[in-house]
Amino acid sequence: MTTKKKYPEKWTELNPGCMVFEAGSAKAHKTGSWKAQHPVWDNRKCIKCGVCYIYCPEACVSRTEEGYYAADLEYCKGCGICAHECWPGAIEMKEEEV
């Protein structure tokens, strides 16, 4: 297995216009380490409206099998937008534990 280079070594190896042809390549950048707080769902209060899913700027909130919502913490930046937008107050932002 060859390990993928972080950057092209030579200028001649760059894609024209620096285009990135690999779909979903941003997956490699795990932004989860940026968060000082993380969202915690209280599904008893959740009405399954999907607002948190729509508002998450990182698109890391997805629907669970039961129809509730959860964040992929590997990418969640801890911005708190989901908690702010969830009007039944089902999401709480908690400090990251040391």
Partner: peptide, 18 residues
């Protein structure tokens, strides 16, 4: 396809050369 991606200092010189 991503167009207009970010270029960090470690690649910017190469981009200018291109």
């Amino acid at each position: 396809v991503s167009m207009g991606a970010y270029a960090f200092p470690d690649i910017f010189t190469e981009v200018m050369k291109v």
